[in-house]
Each structure stands twice: as structure tokens, then as C-alpha cells.
Design a protein around this nucleic acid. Sequence first.
DNA 1: TTGCAGTCAATATC
DNA 2: GATATTGACTGCAA
Length: 528
Amino acid sequence: GSVSDMLSRPKPWSKLTQKGREPFIRMQLWLNGELGQGVLPVQGQQQGPVLHSVTSLQDPLQQGCVSSESTPKTSASCSPAPESPMSSSESVKSLTELVQQPCPPIETSKDGKPPEPSDPPVSDSQPTTPLPVSGHSTLSIQELVAMSPELDTYGITKRVKEVLTDNNLGQRLFGETILGLTQGSVSDLLARPKPWHKLSLKGREPFVRMQLWLNDPNNVEKLMDMKRMEKKAYMKRRHSSVSDSQPCEPPSVGIDYSQGASPQPQHQLKKPRVVLAPEEKEALKRAYQQKPYPSPKTIEELATQLNLKTSTVINWFHNYRSRIRRELFIEEIQAGSQGQAGASDSPSSARSGRAAPSSEGDSCDGVEAADAEEQAGPAAAKSQGGPAEAAPAPAPPQREEAPRPAEQAEQAEAPPSGTPGPDDEAAAEDAGPADRPAPAPSPAAPAAGEDAATSAARPAGAASATATAIATAPRRPSSLQSLFGLPEAAARDSRDNPLRKKKAANLNSIIHRLEKAASREEPIEWEF
DNA sequence: TTGCAGTCAATATC
DNA sequence: GATATTGACTGCAA
């Protein structure tokens, strides 16, 4: 039905969302494969800019186009002809070629294999990033992302980290030249990669870039060159820095945010960064224990009591939820790789994607929170013989460490005690997404020294994630896989993992209890 | 409107 | 100096 609709009433490119564009790109590529290139381009492709503004080329990066200079076809993308977005057919052509090219895994990259297609990594999709790109490459990277097979994000980051450390290459350099991201983002990305299927198209881009970079036989050398150039430029600047007023842009790398424009007027405009005091964080965590999704009113109260701006409180909750979620992903991945030899440790394999949403697939987030509650609950519930007196007890220093997933599973199994705390009200009041779990304190677990917040912070959701993972998405290797040189990424499947099954079971019971708890309503008071 | 994903960039920590 | 953490912001989707 969707196909029929799409074929008979295609929307103009500009009206399509990223996801909506995917089918058209696929069709285009399919057409290419079947009929040869140069077939009429997808509507939007004619408007190169639609996909992304072609940022002005920046030499270094241009060269950074690195890997591809070698390849005639891709070279086009590096060569400046940018202003005129390459013809769509051209773009498709190169993409197709890329796709068909074998991409050896990093390990073999050094053995002088033929130039690989990798250069798209240098492309850019973020207008503001330093990534130098030609319209061509931009197009390519996006198409690649859209069509990329499931990538093992965890494995990729692992390898990238290895390569970087082995070669003494910094995250900043790597991020700015290869990914178009800042150091902090790179660090975060490398340390806590999300599973492929949890990533949006945009979020997948860095991973595709990393994969392509890994596939590049000269990746390290190029980065080393960059490093040298940067250093040179830096020295040069230092020496000839009589008039430092000029921003002296780093020659090689796209942008050097670090120095240069330091003493600028903008300083005055900047508002100081808010740094929450430990007690404040503590309080917020406690609040989170009881209400992962506090209502505006609650937020207001929290802000007032903590003497913070409401926006700060809101941001904190957003960030905290989001980060906990990521912690869970990592835990799961690690658990997966640990718990089973050779079994899928790949996040992606752990939960096979949105494509085949299992019933719980998306409840994951909620569950996670729920699970957190589950674990945290005890503490909260306990300390509050009644409605949330949640906080008072001087919280023991908490560490955000998460217990092994297995532990979680165990904990989760704790018999649901019948006296759910009052804070369940959260569910009702918050009117959060339906799938969102209401805090369900489970008296079962002793608050024993462990702070609720701590519990919340842990990957409680691992179980949920697992459940999700158990979903059955079939993974089909695609020709694209070869492009990314990921032989095994998609091939693994860990659904058999007993631990996962166990977790899934626990999860179900948790969800059940939470649902019950959620149906109750009781006000909560915040006291810190 | 709300929540989330993805980032940036300031700051903390190693 | 490099890396990790984290508050804030932007854009998107439901």
C-alpha cells in the first residue's frame, strides 16, 4: 500500500522528511542497478542544495578528501566543482560504485589495497561543521547513511579508539577532520555509542564516517599529516604572532575552535555555565527516582526549592534521561559481549531495529526508566513512609556506576512487594508518553546504603533493552555491507542468550507491576 | 507542547 | 594537553 501510494503520489523532495526520502533514494539506486546509471534523478536530487548546502571547501579537508583522491570516481567529489552540485546521476553513480566496492576491515587496510571509497567521510552534512565537502560527497554520505546496513557501532568505536590510541591521535583532530564534531562529542560518541537501530539518520552519520575511515588504508597517515600541518601552523602563528588579533585559522584542519578567537567581544554575551552543586544533583536525582517525567508543576517546585531556573531543571531531566539511556545501551552491549563468547555483542544485533519493532521495541526507554524506578524505588519508598519524603537522608556519595546487567536482572526479580509507594502519582500526573513507566517503588529491595539515584542511574533498562533485542528483526546482509567492511556486524545474533531471556522475563514482570502502580494516584511532595 | 536526539562548548578530571 | 563530563541549545517528530 505504501508503495502504491508512493508511486502514484510521490511527494516533492522538499516536502519529505529524511525518512521519507529514503525510499526514493533506494528507488534511485535500484534503478541504477537495473538500468544503469544516469537515470533520471530523484526529484530533489536535482536541487543539490536540498540535501545540504555545499559548504565551501577547506583545503585541508579537501585533501582530507583523503582517501578518495586516489579513486577516479570519488575524486570527483573532492575536486572542487562544488558550487555546482554534481549531477544527480553522477552522484548516484559514485554511490553505486562505492557500494559495490569491497571494503576491507581496518586491520587489512594497511596492506595497500586499492583505493577505497571511503572518502565520503570527509563530506559534511552539517553546514556549520568544518568538514569540507563538495556537494557530491555530501550527497554520498547521506545516501550511504540512508542505505547503510546495520553497523556495529560498538565495534566501530572500539576500533577507532584503538587506532587513535595506537597512533597517538587525538579525539579533537579526529573529530574535527573526520567527523566534523567537537572533541566532547567525539569522546561521548566513542565512549557511549548507541546501537545502530536506536540512531537517527543523523546520528548514524558519524558511525558511517568512522567505518569509512577505518576502511581507508591511509587513514592514519592522513590524520598524521593533518596533525603535522596543524602543528606547523601553530608554530608559525606563535612566531609570527605580533598581531594576534587575527583569528589565524588553522591551516589544515577545518576549524580550530580552541584558540585564535579568544579575546573577542562575544565574551560579554556569554552567560556563565551553570554548574550544579553536588547537593543539587543529588536532589534532582532523587526527584528523578520518583518522577522521571516530572510535570511542569513539579519542575517548578523543584526549581524553586533548589533555587534553579526551571529551564535548568528541565534540561537536567532531559539530559539525565537521555544519558541514563545510553548507559544502558553500553551495559547491554558489554553484557552481551561478556556473557557470550562470540555471541553478538553488537548493539545492533542485540536489538534488531525499528524495522521489526517487537512489541516492546519502543517501550524500551520507558522501561528503562521503569526499571530504574524498580530498583530505585525501594530506597525512595522506604525512606518515605509516605509520599515522597524522598530526599532527606543524606545520600551516600553516589556513583553512577551500573551494576552488571546480570545483577540488575537479579534485582529486578525481587518479588514485587505489595506496597507501592505513593509516588506513583507521577505516572498519572505527568501524562507522559503512554509507554512511560510510572515510578514504581518496590519495597522489596532494601535501600541499603545504595542511594536511589544511583540505582536510577544504572542501566536498569538493560533488561528492557534486552527484551527489545530479543525482537526478531531479521538481518539481511546487504551489498552495502561490503562497503562498510563489516562482515560480522550483522551476522551475529544473540537472541538466544539466556541472560537476555531472563532479563526479558524480569522486564515483563516489572512492566506489569509498574502498570499497576501507575494506576494509583497520590500527590508527591518534594523535600530536600 | 513535549520529549528526544544530537551537539556544542565550558569545565572537570586524568 | 588530552579526554571526560555535563548544562544548554537546535531541530524534529508525535
